[in-house]
Design a protein around this nucleic acid. Structure first.
Length: 795
RNA sequence: GGACUCGUAGCUCAGCUGGUAGAGCGUUGCAUUCACAUUGCAAAUGUCAGAGGUUCGAAUCCUCUCGGGUCCACCA
């Protein structure tokens, strides 16, 4: 063994060895197979001299049994443990946030595998609809100076697919580099044809049962993506705008009613103003009429509680089609709702001289017009929050459109109950409150997207059902594959997997599903789509480990879909990870380059060190605020720890290399003689028992910080600094006094403790522990990854 | 507006069901052919945000105040 542990020459080799031995399979052939057989070489040969043979005394050979406890026989009847990997988005590399879920999930997976349970970690990647489409569009613009329209839908989708596949490979390699012991043969992609098929079936089933419907209502529209977005897909950005105080001429006397608004561009569309009926100052206005300052048409003033008397002048204009609050009010008061802004974010042809202008331009021109005609009281600067597209940061244009919605209340009700009754536990518990709060206020979920990258809706329109000229016109456009046509004007959708039979001519709805509609079904669909009966064995899965950012987007939806599709929860525990932030509290991201790149960190310090740095001494459910530099120091600290562990290994094996005069007995054979052991040996043994119990309990409770830091403390400061230092002195004395039996007993204890430490550390530091395990002087041995988890009661 | 959460050593954070404070990094000494300088030994620093309450006893439970953060929601 070299003086320092070199992760660079170790990690790849070890990972390949695990994979080739089939160690990641839930019912693997690797279980119980002695190490080396997969390679057809005797143990240790890869590293030079097999220990012991040179000295003729491999320890344990005299007893003819393998060292340590028996390996687990993963038993098909045993209680399974399973995790479905949250599929990383197929649009880029992994960041350190992903490394958290690998560190956490892999620790659990390895722990349960060592306990002999059939253990499955199923990997996958997500096509990430809008996000990937936007990312790829940027790439397209940059590299080929083309838009998606230049490629056309078919070609665009083809290239998007390839883009995802390329990224997928990169991510797989990163997951391997981190040591993720997932079963690659079961890997899934959300756009796999079989997975997509199941997604469509779900939609059809929900439609049949009245859980999805097509509704005409206000939606969040991104003019750049040209698609609807759900509320959860918005971001709120503070913006410096202007508040225009617009004069509406009174009809019953001279003068104006003043309205404060940031949006003057749809004024021509407006037919009503509103005041709060409890507002004494403006109460008298209710029922009166003013003139629309742009069109001169009469506008009625109504009363509604929603108006804040303290804002502006206490009078608001209503633009029902382009403001969701106004929309609600309009429904309530039966005010006609008319679109004045189209899918491209331009004013419609009804806007007269402003027709066809982008809203931003129109705002400027209209304010100038108002000003010129003495209809503008004043303009004041105004800071407020504006909704933007989460993916491309374009300002959202609320508009009224016909979209597909999931009728969410019935699903939410069951999902709420599942958590209330503990069928799904959310850990840390604090997230349960957030979950309930969200479920309580949940609104129907728009699932149709007008983007190209995703599963296309199994919805068809027949030509004969289209009656108006507009409908027929759009039908023709769609038929020609015109991607700018409006689907939402078409009438009488038919929900069906295949094109409906019959004499009529049909076209398929070009819309795709919201990404989360498909990933919400992920645990069900990944397991169902297997030829190994995984659904039967592993559903409901045990743990879902992911970040809280997607608690609602994903976790909540999986619970809803899981219950809907299978009547069972999709997982028993939702284990929520905190996120990494920089010293200013900003989320770490590639674009801000305020975080450590996992590839570089692994290359420099090893995956074990990176994993430990993310787990040790912290609560993985909490955020970690840490600067790039401090993170690196942290990782270096655990690299040092791997090296310490390595050097302890060197010391341990050195005790056996120069042939002691007696065989070193197995610790197991010493149990009867326990009382004759030196007090220090007895003490370390009882501390080991406590340590085993502590780590086991911590893992059962998802306390990774506790498990890792107590192991760190025990290994370094108890075992190495205290026990081994004292042991050196004792051995010297024993040898001087020719008490070889005492030496043998002590070395046996020393070895037993060390091997147990390797096992306990393996879930957290898989590479270095596995490597040391193989370099330890023992003749026949299994892989550490499938060695059995230590248990110990006081002998 | 609603919900949640945090405030512990210079920094980043642990501290589970209440019993007079811990780690890592950093700082300061000392040690070096002995498994490891990616090391060892030793040392210093805290009215656990503030106030009140429950208790024999609170960083730990309750209330309030101050100060951060996050999430949800239709702020013109």
């Amino acid at each position: 063994m070299d003086k320092t542990y070199d992760h660079k020459t170790t990690e790849d080799r070890i990972y390949k060895m695990w994979e080739e031995a089939g160690a990641f399979k839930p019912f693997g052939s690797a279980h119980g197979k002695p190490f080396g057989s997969a390679h057809g070489k005797p143990f240790g040969s890869a590293h030079g001299k097999p220990f012991g043979s040179a000295h003729g005394k491999p320890f344990g050979s005299a007893h003819g049994k393998p060292f340590g406890s028996l390996p687990p026989e993963a038993d098909k009847q045993g209680k399974p443990f399973s995790i479905i990997m949250p599929p990383p988005n197929a649009n880029g590399e992994l960041h350190l946030g992903h490394a958290i879920f690998v560190a956490v999930s892999d620790a659990l997976i390895r722990y349960h595998r060592m306990r002999g349970e059939p253990t499955l970690w199923l990997p996958g990647v997500d096509h990430a609809g809008i996000l990937t489409q936007v990312t790829f569009e940027k790439k397209l613009r940059k590299e080929q100076d083309k838009s998606r329209y230049d490629l056309g839908r078919e070609e665009f989708v083809k290239q998007c697919y390839k883009f995802c596949m390329d990224n997928k490979m990169l991510m797989e390699n990163q997951l391997r580099a981190l040591g993720a012991s997932c079963d690659w043969q079961r890997e899934k992609f959300t756009m796999d044809p079989q997975i997509s098929q199941l997604v469509l079936e779900t939609f059809i089933k929900m439609h049949r049962e009245g859980l999805v419907y097509r509704g005409f209502r206000i939606v969040n529209w991104c003019p750049r993506c040209r698609s609807t977005l759900a509320d959860l897909e918005l971001e709120w950005k503070e913006q410096e705008d202007q508040l225009y105080f617009v004069r509406y001429p009174k009809t019953w006397e001279e003068g104006y009613v003043i309205v404060a608004t940031t949006r003057v561009e749809p004024i021509w569309l407006d037919t009503h103003l509103a005041v709060n009926p409890t507002d004494k100052k403006n109460l008298h206005l209710i029922g009166k009429n003013v003139k629309n300052p742009l069109t001169g048409k009469d506008m009625k003033i109504i009363g509604d509680e929603f108006v804040d008397p303290k804002f502006g002048t206490g009078v608001v204009k209503l633009t029902p089609a382009h403001d969701s609050k106004d929309y609600q009010v309009a429904i309530k008061h039966n005010i006609p709702i008319k679109n004045g802004i189209d899918f491209d974010g331009k004013l419609t042809s009804d806007a007269g001289q402003w027709a066809g202008l982008k809203t931003k331009v129109a705002r400027q021109l209209i304010s100038e017009y108002l000003s010129k005609n003495n209809l503008l009281e004043k303009i004041v600067p105004f800071k407020h929050e504006v909704a933007v597209c989460e993916r491309c940061a374009t300002t959202i244009e609320p508009l009224v459109s016909r979209q597909w919605f999931v009728s969410i209340k019935p699903l939410a009700k069951r999902a709420t109950t599942a958590v209330e009754t503990g069928k799904v536990k959310i850990i840390p518990k604090k997230y349960e409150a957030m979950y309930f709060n969200w479920m309580k206020n949940i609104r129907d979920w728009p699932i149709s997207r007008q983007i190209w990258w995703g599963q296309q809706l199994p919805v068809w329109y027949g030509r004969s059902s289209q009656k108006t000229t507009e409908q027929i016109h759009e039908f023709e456009l769609l038929k020609k594959g015109d991607t700018r046509s409006r689907t939402d004007v078409l009438e009488s959708p038919i929900v069906s997997q295949d094109m409906p039979a019959g004499d009529d001519e049909y076209i398929q709805d070009p819309d795709t599903f919201d990404t989360w509609f498909s990933s919400g079904q992920w645990p069900v669909n990944t397991l169902k789509n297997s030829d190994t009966n995984d659904f039967k064995h592993f559903y409901p899965t045990t743990v879902m480990n992911t970040a809280y950012e997607i608690l609602f987007l994903w976790v909540a939806r999986m619970i809803m879909f899981g219950l809907y599709l299978t009547d069972e929860v999709p997982f028993q525990v939702a284990l929520i990870n905190g996120v990494l932030r920089d010293e200013k509290g900003q989320k770490m991201s590639k674009s801000k380059s305020n975080g450590i790149n996992p590839n570089e960190a692994i290359a420099k310090y090893g995956a074990d060190a990176v994993r430990m740095a993310l787990l040790a001494g912290r609560d993985s459910g909490n955020d970690l605020l840490i600067s790039k530099q401090q993170m690196e120091e942290r990782i270096r600290g655990y690299r040092n720890f791997s090296n310490k562990l390595w050097n302890i290994g060197r010391f341990v094996s050195m005790q056996f290399t120069d042939g002691s005069p007696v065989d070193i007995p197995f610790y197991e054979d010493l149990v009867a003689a326990r009382k004759t052991l030196h007090p220090q040996d007895r003490r370390i043994l009882s501390q080991l028992t406590m340590q085993i119990n502590r780590v086991t309990k911590a893992l059962d409770n998802y306390n990774f910080g506790e498990a890792t830091s107590s192991l760190y403390e025990f290994t370094w400061h108890t075992y190495a600094d205290w026990y081994l230092e004292n042991l050196k002195l004792r051995i010297r004395t024993y040898e001087l006094e020719k008490k070889h039996e005492e030496t043998a007993k002590t070395l046996s204890v020393m070895r037993y403790i060390y091997f147990t430490i390797l096992k306990l550390l393996h879930p957290f530091m898989p590479f270095v522990t596995e490597e040391i395990w193989h370099l330890m002087p023992i003749e026949s041995k299994n892989l550490l990854i499938t060695a059995s988890w230590p248990t110990r009661s006081e002998d």
